[in-house]
């Protein structure tokens, strides 16, 4: 295809991505370098019978006018990145000096908003992803053995947790795990503790969110693995049987190697999607105990006074996180591509 034709074909798509993905990224970077204007202070001199006094007061009108004229604020360099809400370098140095044990040190860091969100997001990403792969594989192996008549309905039901709107799905589960909901009541009965509430402790909230994550993503892994199972070479399976391989050995040495490329594919997609985790935190009202990076950006924009600079700085750090997460994949693809070109 000639360059010119290619250009015209790709133009609408490229323009949309440039205007609404690339430029917003620039806008985020610019916003993160600015900070809201300080209040305009006027100093007035009041002279009375006992001499003159200088009084300073906030000129609300002038402040608002300034903020309306230049909504971006004033240039602040990287200061937002290092403040308490983000990288908090000063706080970490302080914690390092005052705490003797590593436990206390990390405990203190964990309470800084950005690190708390980062810890949860990373934990969620790296715990949910492998669980999704294992559960998806087990379901696929199971469904593969179901009588053909029942396969359609089984797949239909299995798709539902993935197709459902994430916010709606998390709300449905949130209502069920409520202390007065059906799962909440059942758990209270099982653990014989009428006060048990999954919303109370941070640890239980984390587990709840991760269980939701596995529930909603396992169908994706299942469908991909199930399609992969249809193409397993029957000859090699039969050869393995003749050689006396047990069922487990057949799966371990024939089926799993066949599915390995799919595991890579699912991990890639799941790492990207789990790093974005957002709606469940809202649905489960877990913002206090288990904030994700996406959630703290949302919270900054939802507060009474929108903290553009804070939201933008977290966004930039999150995008950097995505880049680091994807870098092995990109490097590998680049090497493959160069190998092909040479």
């Amino acid at each position: 295809m000639r360059h010119k034709t290619f250009f015209w074909f790709i133009l609408p798509s490229l323009a949309a991505m440039f205007l609404f993905i690339a430029l917003p990224l620039v806008s985020v970077v610019v916003q993160s370098l600015h900070i809201e204007h300080e209040q305009v202070i006027v100093v007035t001199e009041n002279c009375g019978p006992f001499g003159c006094k200088q009084e300073s007061s906030v000129d609300t009108e002038a402040t608002e006018q300034l903020r309306a004229e230049k909504p971006l604020g004033r240039f602040a360099g990287l200061s937002t990145y290092f403040d308490r809400g983000h990288l908090a370098t000063a706080e970490i140095a302080e914690a390092w000096r005052t705490n003797d044990s590593f436990g206390d040190f990390f405990g203190e860091i964990f309470n800084l908003p950005f690190y708390k969100a980062l810890t949860f997001t990373l934990a969620y990403t790296f715990i949910v992803t492998p669980l999704v792969i294992v559960l998806g594989l087990l379901i696929a192996l199971g469904v593969n053995r179901v009588t053909p008549v029942l396969k359609g309905p089984t797949i239909f039901v299995s798709l539902l947790p993935m197709m459902i709107t994430p916010l709606v799905g998390s709300l449905i589960l949130f209502w069920m795990i409520d202390a007065q909901g059906v799962i909440g009541k059942t758990l209270q009965f099982i653990f014989d503790d009428p006060e048990l509430s999954l919303k109370a402790s941070p640890a239980l909230t984390w587990i709840t969110l991760m269980v939701y994550g596995v529930w909603s993503s396992a169908p994706f892994a299942f469908v991909v693995f199930y399609a992969g199972l249809q193409t397993v070479n029957t000859d090699s399976l039969e050869a393995a049987q003749i050689d006396g391989a047990s069922r487990w050995q057949q799966i371990r040495f024939v089926v799993i190697p066949h599915l390995m490329p799919l595991v890579v594919f699912i991990s890639l997609i799941q790492l990207m999607d789990n790093f974005k985790v957002f709606e469940p935190v809202i649905g489960f009202k877990a913002g206090a105990n288990a904030p994700s990076l996406s959630y703290i950006i949302f919270a900054d924009m939802r507060s009474d006074i929108i903290r553009y600079n804070s939201a933008a700085a977290t966004s930039v750090l999150t995008v950097l996180g995505v880049a680091i997460l994807l870098s092995p994949v990109l490097l590998r693809t680049w090497r493959d591509f160069k190998g092909k070109a040479v």
Partner: peptide
Amino acid sequence: GHKYAFWLLMIALVFRAMPHITLVSGYLL
């Protein structure tokens, strides 16, 4: 089949991984 088509696909992959809310914070102002 040109090189830039490959790079466009790679950029699209990176864009796909971007959390939507980070872009929204760029739109708002």
